[in-house]
Simulated scan of single mutants.
Amino acid sequence: MDVTHEHIVWWLESVGGNRAGQLAHRTSIRAFYGWAFASGRVYENPSQERSLRSSARPLAPAWEAEIRSFRTYLRGIGRSEATVSLYRERLRRFAADHASAGPFEITLDDLVEWMARATWSAEYRRGNRATLRVFYQWAVDSGRTPDSPARRLPVVKAGQVRPRPVQDDEYESALRRARDSDRLALRLAAEVGLRRAEVATVHSRDITGTPGEWTLLVHGKGDKERLLPLPESIARSLRLLPEGYAFPGQINGHVSPRYLGKRISALLPTGVTMHALRHRFATRAHEHAGDILLVQQMLGHASPATTQRYVLVSDARLRSLVEAVSQ
């Protein structure tokens, strides 16, 4: 009889023993079947976890409880709701893919194997790595486990990302088809350079100034804040809204960034996301200012190297530069 993943799970449950013994058994089985698969002795590795993401089944109670506690911790240290939701989503995805193991039975091999998925972009892989490291360091600090399996996760290099700004005709078409609230979200992303989570959390109390000199306090990534000047027409639209969040919803009063992103992306061509509007802002801002550090400040990036990945230099500008130098 061929050994299946279910057989392995059943056997591990039946042998009992303490946590260290369970981990030793599991590690040995994984090593054996990893070798057998790599050497062609079996056509499928039964020790690998089966993804449950397509299933409606809830997570194991141990995972649910720890993710809930971790979420409380993140809120307790002042992380934004956007950050809390993102971490929770990533952890739930990992937990669903490791249903047979508890959160503190996970090994470095489990993490590396999960991170090695060929279909992931470098940025997506980097985000998952960061989440796992924060989660397991919290587990160590709170006495839930003596060591973090994520501590030795290899560093993921940033990928080569080509800027993908929304084209002017695509943007204008989206504005024409959008309802009022979506039109405002489009403009905040494309004309002020906000991320979807920053758009989702725009609040009436964050708008200050006087006519012609309106300013928006932006609640950025990593709980960093920055002040941005607002175009008069956008400020006027925001100030006409009722007090509170500009985009009301169920996440502590505001819309979910993910839901907002899907809604705005639906107005753009297939395959183009809301984030491409931010690329549009970066590209146009650089064309006008010619100052990457100024664009970096506007976007709220920690490094100009990140900002450069948002700015698309047109062929016409490159050709014009070459012609000017050659004269």
Rank of each mutant, 00 (worst) to 15 (best):
A20D: 04
E64P: 11
E64A: 15
M274R: 11
R236P: 01
P103D: 07
R263M: 06
P211M: 11
E172W: 05
L299C: 13
E66R: 15
L318M: 06
S51D: 02
G78D: 08
S55M: 04
L268F: 09
V155N: 00
D169N: 07
E170M: 02
V84N: 08
Q160G: 07
S100F: 02
R125V: 09
M298D: 06
H219S: 06
R57F: 07
G143E: 10
F70P: 03
R30H: 03
A282I: 04
L108D: 01
Q167F: 01
A185I: 13
Q137C: 02
P242E: 07
L268R: 12
A324G: 14
G249S: 04
L59W: 02
L74N: 04
S51Y: 11
L268E: 06
A289E: 11
G102Y: 03
G290F: 13
I264C: 04
R144G: 01
Q48G: 07
A150M: 09
Y171I: 05
W120I: 09
L227E: 00
V199M: 07
R205C: 06
L132Q: 02
L230G: 10
P61N: 13
R196A: 15
Q297E: 12
D223F: 05
R205M: 13
P154E: 00
E191N: 11
L216G: 01
L184R: 12
P269F: 08
A189Q: 15
R236C: 01
A20Q: 13
L59Q: 14
A235I: 12
V161N: 15
A276V: 14
L132M: 05
D168G: 06
R75F: 08
G17K: 15
A99K: 13
W138R: 02
A305V: 08
P103Q: 06
L294E: 07
L74M: 11
D109S: 08
A282M: 15
A200T: 09
T283D: 05
L217V: 11
P165T: 12
V295M: 12
H288E: 15
Q160F: 01
A101L: 09
R75G: 14
W63G: 14
R41P: 00
I77R: 03
R125P: 01
P248E: 03
R26F: 02
L241C: 09
E89V: 07
L74R: 05
R125I: 04
G220W: 00
K262E: 00
A60F: 06
L230P: 09
G261A: 10
A20T: 12
R19C: 04
V192L: 12
T210E: 13
L86W: 01
H288D: 13
